[in-house]
């Protein structure tokens, strides 16, 4: 109750909470974007999603230590993670593409443990950060502050999302990816090299997550074990947005981020996660009820 009184006394804080929530949500949306892609195209729920975010973060920190500004490092990180994603596809993922969902859960869970422990061995268990040093803006007489790094991170997240959407819509390879997602067998008959499509999709996912990781290292903190948070959050966003709805993923990411921040403020931080999961259940129930009323057909 006290917390609501604070908001009533200083309603300008709503702006701060909304901004922080949206900016955080944008980064979550980026990781979720990758998950939606892999899930939609390959029918694999990638449990190692958060680990690519984590690796992206560590690469950014290393690049920053080598003197490369973390902002400039983002494309480089994405490229490196793309290669890693490709490698992991060629080693493991291609074996599980057409298999049972359970097998793919197990395999990606294994990869996630492996990457976590490798990161721990190579980079150490310490908390790390990369400094963007971009400054802070004051709004409304200093009551609202925006760290420029968060703004830049959100901008990069939205731009990457947009570029990816365009790529899938317009480019030849993007069309092949969408065709494979719709019907892999038909796509193969039409001469699409689905193996290559899968490899590209998985590598693209790793690259997007890597970029998200770079942003996380600049805005918050990273350590080898923070991946799971991003995996779960991505999963949730994708479930809320629905598969194959990539713009919906961005909207859901931003919305959940903002809702979460308000809940954290009003109910207390300890109920923040509980609130988000309750919200998920409510959304799923509501959607189910609506579906019952309206017959759906494939468009």
């Amino acid at each position: 109750m006290d917390n609501i009184t604070i908001l009533l006394d200083a309603p300008i804080l709503l702006v701060q909470l909304l901004l922080d929530g949206l900016l955080a949500g944008a980064i979550f949306a980026l990781a979720a974007y990758g998950m939606a892609l892999v899930w939609g195209v390959m029918n694999i729920i990638n449990v190692s999603q958060g680990e690519y975010v984590m690796l992206g973060g560590f690469v950014t920190v290393l690049l920053a230590e080598a003197g490369i500004h973390p902002m400039l490092g983002v494309p480089l990180v994405a490229l490196l993670l793309y290669l890693l994603g490709w490698l992991i596809y060629r080693l493991v993922i291609f074996r599980i593409v057409d298999r049972d969902l359970f097998i793919s859960l197990l395999a990606t869970f294994g990869i996630s443990i492996l990457l976590q422990q490798l990161a721990n061995q190579i980079f150490g268990a310490d908390v790390r950060t990369a400094e963007g040093e971009l400054g802070t803006s004051f709004l409304f007489n200093g009551m609202v502050t925006i760290a420029h790094i968060k703004l830049a991170a959100a901008l990069i997240a939205v731009l990457t999302g947009g570029a990816l959407w365009l790529f899938l819509k317009k480019s030849r390879l993007g069309q092949a990816i969408r065709a494979t997602a719709q019907n892999a067998r038909a796509a193969r008959i039409m001469g699409i090299d689905t193996d290559r499509v899968y490899a590209t999709t998985f590598a693209l996912n790793a690259a997007i997550c890597g970029a998200a990781g770079a942003l996380v290292a600049m805005t918050w903190i990273i350590h080898p074990y923070f991946g799971l948070v991003y995996t779960i959050r991505s999963f949730m966003i994708v479930v809320v947005a629905g598969l194959g709805n990539l713009l919906g993923v961005i909207a859901a990411g931003l919305g959940l981020g903002a809702a979460e921040n308000f809940a954290g403020f009003v109910l207390g931080v300890e109920y923040q996660a509980a609130f988000v999961f309750t919200l998920l259940v409510v959304i799923l129930l509501a959607r189910n009820l609506l579906l019952g009323r309206k017959r759906q057909y494939l468009k």
Binding site: I6, D9, L13, Q16, D20, W220, F226, V229, F265
Partner: peptide
């Protein structure tokens, strides 16, 4: 598992 304390800090500001 949290990696953000901006909500608590917003309270501190108020």
């Amino acid at each position: 598992e949290i990696n953000d304390m901006s909500t608590s800090l917003t309270k501190v500001r108020a």
